[in-house]
Simulated assay, not measured.
Amino acid sequence: MAEKEIRSEEQLGVKWDQCIYDTLVKTGTGLGLGVVFSVFLFKRRTWPVAFGTGVGVGIGYANCQHEFKDPFSLRGKLVKVMPKEE
């Protein structure tokens, strides 16, 4: 069977889905760590929560920018070439 070709619209949709998911995960993680640090280390102040959330959003945004600006990145594994024995 022939391989199914993926349209560019579908590729773009997949990138957006990954981007949104990644940003939400990083924002939630930053929020959670901010709450933990706020409760246990900083006497229930609000700045660790805001800082953690902002860092999560910033990292997610930077990852999205990288994903959309580098569309043709090839991911592969390193293959060692062995010399011929005569």
Rank of each mutant, 00 (worst) to 15 (best):
Lys4Pro: 08
Phe40Pro: 05
Met1Lys: 11
Thr29Asp: 04
Phe37His: 02
Gly28Pro: 02
Lys84His: 06
Glu10Lys: 11
Pro71Asn: 07
Gln11Tyr: 07
Gly58Phe: 04
Leu24Phe: 14
Gly30Tyr: 02
Arg45Thr: 15
Lys15Asn: 10
Gly28Phe: 12
Arg75Gln: 08
Cys19Met: 14
Gln65Glu: 13
Asp22Phe: 09
Val36Asn: 06
Asn63Thr: 05
Val35Gly: 03
Gly76Cys: 07
Arg44Gly: 09
Glu5Trp: 08
Val49Arg: 00
Tyr21Ile: 15
Gly60Pro: 02
Phe37Arg: 04
Thr27Lys: 01
Ala50Lys: 05
Leu24Asp: 04
Gly13Glu: 10
Glu10Val: 11
Glu9Ala: 08
Lys84Glu: 12
Pro48Trp: 02
Thr53Pro: 02
Glu3Pro: 05
Gly58Arg: 00
Gly32Arg: 01
Lys69Cys: 05
Met82Val: 10
Gly52Asp: 02
Val49Thr: 03
Thr53Met: 06
Gly52Arg: 01
Val81Arg: 09
Glu67Cys: 03
Leu78Ala: 09
Met1Arg: 10
Pro48Leu: 10
Arg7Gly: 13
Val55Trp: 04
Arg44Trp: 13
Leu74Asp: 11
Pro71Glu: 11
Glu9Leu: 10
Gln65Val: 12
Met1Asp: 10
Glu10Gly: 00
Gly28Met: 08
Thr46Gln: 10
Phe42Val: 09
Lys84Gly: 03
Leu33Gly: 02
Phe68Glu: 06
Ser8Arg: 11
Ile20His: 06
Val36Asp: 07
Glu67His: 01
Lys80Pro: 02
Gly60Phe: 00
Glu5Ala: 14
Leu12Phe: 15
Ile59His: 02
Phe40Val: 09
Ala2Thr: 08
Leu31Phe: 15
Val57Glu: 03
Arg75Trp: 06
Lys80Val: 05
Gly54Pro: 01
Tyr21Glu: 13
Glu10Ala: 09
Gly30Ile: 02
Ser38Gln: 04
Val35Trp: 05
Arg75Val: 12
Ala62Cys: 08
Ile59Leu: 15
Ser73Ile: 14
Pro71Phe: 06
Glu85Lys: 06
Cys64Gln: 01
Glu10Pro: 04
Ser8Leu: 14
Cys64His: 00
Phe42Leu: 14
Arg75Asp: 06
Met1Phe: 11
Lys77Glu: 13
Ile59Arg: 04
Phe42Ile: 08
Lys4Met: 11
Ser38Cys: 09
Lys4Ala: 12
Val35Arg: 00
Leu31Ile: 12
Glu9Trp: 07
Lys77Leu: 09
Gly56Val: 00
His66Asp: 06
Thr23Phe: 04
Phe68Arg: 07
Val39Gln: 15
Leu33Gln: 01
Thr53Ile: 07
